[in-house]
């Protein structure tokens, strides 16, 4: 599934990117602190299909990802 489908409050592991190389999203997201293999937590979602706020607990990074970005990030659910 993609990050945009992960429910608020859930923990997921980043698997990779949809269409890697198609845009510079993959490297942009990586430079801002989310890498394949990272465990991330979905903290909240903005109204009107706005961004999702995620946290990388291991590094303390907190990022808002717009829905388009969230749809490009493939994740797998982790047990709560």
């Amino acid at each position: 599934m993609t990050l945009s489908e992960a429910p608020v409050g859930s923990r997921v592991r980043v698997v990779g990117h949809e269409r890697p190389g198609a845009c510079q999203c993959a490297s942009a997201i990586a430079a801002m602190g989310i890498h394949p293999g990272d465990e991330i937590r979905v903290i909240r979602a903005a109204p009107f299909h706005g961004p999702v706020l995620v946290e990388v607990p291991s590094s303390g990074v907190r990022l808002a990802l717009g829905r388009g970005m969230a749809r490009s990030l493939i994740v797998e659910p982790l047990p709560a």
């Binding site: 801002m32 961004p51 907190r62 990022l63 808002a64 717009g66 388009g68 969230a70």
Partner: peptide, 11 residues
């Protein structure tokens, strides 16, 4: 083309 938001939320 849509380029999405990617933004740090500082404390």
């Amino acid at each position: 083309q849509v380029t999405g938001l990617l933004m740090d939320i500082p404390p």
